[in-house]
Computed example of a mutant assay.
Amino acid sequence: MPQPRTTTTPPPLPATVWLPGPRDSEISPTAPAILPPWAIGKIRTEFTRRPGRPPAPFLRLAISDTDECMDARTLCTQDTNPDHSHNASRTTPVLLAELHPSTLPTADVCSQYGSDEQGAIDDAWPGFFHRAHRILRGNGLLLLATRQRRDADRLTDPLGLLVAAARTAGFRYLQHIVIVHGHPVGDRIVPAPPDDAPPGLMHSDLLVLRAQGSRS
């Protein structure tokens, strides 16, 4: 008799709004980081630890510009959590890229992403997503942390442009998580924005993307 087909159920996605807990201090991230330390710890818990398997390696990129040879200037650190065993180094890492608002693409740039395949490989933002996809092929996770920026005295939201660029490179959008810069007091939230945040901003954004297949 034919054997029944088995399927692997992906782990459930975490909550879409994150607040610091009672014991988490709201420490402003140091430039060029975007997320506070408590949020980094929560990312480690939610995305790198898998029941019955070694934790996935956790790589952090702090991207401060997208000019030519950006990779040589991008600060990269690897998680040093003692839970990471030798076998974990053989698994696909979880890649967190913290994007400073000044590096975010504009609509004029993103409208050209699909117009020239060679340009999509070589240019700054498209090139970053293609290189990340090569690292994470095989269902690896790319997490993009960023926040709104102020242009012409208005807050602009870059998330749609980033998702479009990531999809062009072969990523699938999974989730948008709001990282609140504040702490609950009774029935309200007391804002605690980063030092370099524009007026009116009290959250950062975390996009969860999964690499799909291979790009030739």
Rank of each mutant, 00 (worst) to 15 (best):
E117Q: 13
T92K: 12
D108F: 08
I121M: 12
T103P: 08
L104R: 04
A124F: 01
S102M: 10
S102E: 13
L95Q: 03
S111F: 03
D123S: 11
R90F: 15
Q118I: 08
L95E: 03
P93T: 04
S111Q: 13
T106F: 10
T91F: 06
A124N: 06
I121H: 12
G119E: 05
G114C: 05
Q112R: 14
S102P: 01
D116W: 08
Y113N: 11
C110T: 10
G114H: 06
P93K: 05
L99A: 06
Q118K: 10
L96S: 02
G119N: 08
T91E: 09
Y113C: 09
D123R: 13
A120W: 00
A124K: 01
A97M: 09
T91Y: 05
S111A: 15
T91A: 13
S102I: 07
R90P: 00
D123T: 04
Q112F: 03
D108R: 12
C110L: 11
P93I: 04
T106V: 07
Y113V: 15
D108S: 15
T92V: 14
Q112P: 01
T103F: 09
D123Y: 06
L99P: 00
H100P: 09
S115K: 15
S115R: 14
S111D: 13
E117L: 15
V109H: 10
L95Y: 08
P101Y: 04
T103K: 08
H100C: 15
S111P: 01
D122H: 11
Y113P: 00
D116T: 04
P101E: 03
E98P: 02
Y113Q: 02
T91M: 13
S115I: 03
A120E: 02
L95G: 05
A107C: 05
G119D: 07
T91R: 15
P105G: 05
G119R: 12
A107E: 11
V94Q: 00
A124W: 00
L99R: 01
G114I: 00
S102Y: 01
V94I: 13
E117Y: 12
D116Q: 04
V94W: 01
T103M: 10
S115H: 10
A124V: 00
P101L: 04
A107S: 14
C110H: 03
T92E: 03
V109S: 14
G119Y: 09
A120H: 01
Q118G: 02
V94S: 02
L96N: 01
Q112C: 13
Q118T: 06
A124I: 00
L96W: 02
P93A: 10
V109R: 11
G119L: 09
E98R: 05
E117H: 12
T103S: 14
D122T: 06
D122Q: 13
L95C: 11
C110M: 14
T103L: 11
A97Y: 01
G119Q: 08
D108I: 08
T106C: 08
R90K: 14
A107F: 05
D122E: 12
D123W: 11
A107H: 09
L96A: 06
A97K: 00
A124C: 08
P93N: 09
Q112L: 15
P105C: 06
D116F: 05
